[in-house]
Design a protein around this nucleic acid. Sequence first.
DNA 1: ATAACTCATAACCACCGAGTTATAGGTAAG
DNA 2: CTTACCTATAACTCGGTGGTTATGAGTTAT
Lengths: 104, 104
Amino acid sequence: MPDMLFKTLADPTRRAIFERLCRDGEQTVGALTARAGVSQPAVSKHLGVLKQAGLVLDRQAGRQTHYSVPRGALVPLADWTQEMTGFWESRFDGLEDLLKRMDQ
Amino acid sequence: MPDMLFKTLADPTRRAIFERLCRDGEQTVGALTARAGVSQPAVSKHLGVLKQAGLVLDRQAGRQTHYSVPRGALVPLADWTQEMTGFWESRFDGLEDLLKRMDQ
DNA sequence: ATAACTCATAACCACCGAGTTATAGGTAAG
DNA sequence: CTTACCTATAACTCGGTGGTTATGAGTTAT
């Protein structure tokens, strides 16, 4: 399910762009490019991938585009993480129960 | 920081192996290979990457190796997610405060 | 109307990594 | 001791993708 999410966040440059948007809020492509360390087309491409994954929204304003992180963008990731750790804990609880029963 | 974590979990086959270990607990390489859909060397390679990222542990037993997910393997991922959503919320709170002050 | 600016797309290149087959190392079984 | 089994490593191929430069589309400014 969160396949595209992991793939999208796997690239360091792209994740750095996303993190900056999380920290500082809405940014133009130019502002993001200034601190990205790569060319403007590369930034635009990354933003396209982020948008495709639902991690970013774009807002047109004149000749510049503003990007921002929509609310709840990372909810699927948080859900997946909790689900996986939940499996671990349930197995652990099962083991605890077993040990408890063996103790009696 | 969680660079290797994201890169490791980005591949679907590798993530499927990890998920299976989360759900069903410790597994041998053979058991994992049976349901992986790829060859045994591929599975061994994925397990090596997962181990490098601290997402699995290996236990030698005779001529077969058992892999499992250590406790807290996904904590860095959960931390990163919470940090990012935290940035979002704090910015939102700041906006709320601003609107509240403007309302007076 | 023309020029300058912002961003997206096109076309291309180079590299990384996931997959394969073949094989080696080590352990149990005959 | 030899054979069969389980896993890891080596060597290689190939597709995906992140980077670049060049350019186009749309918008503001002169």
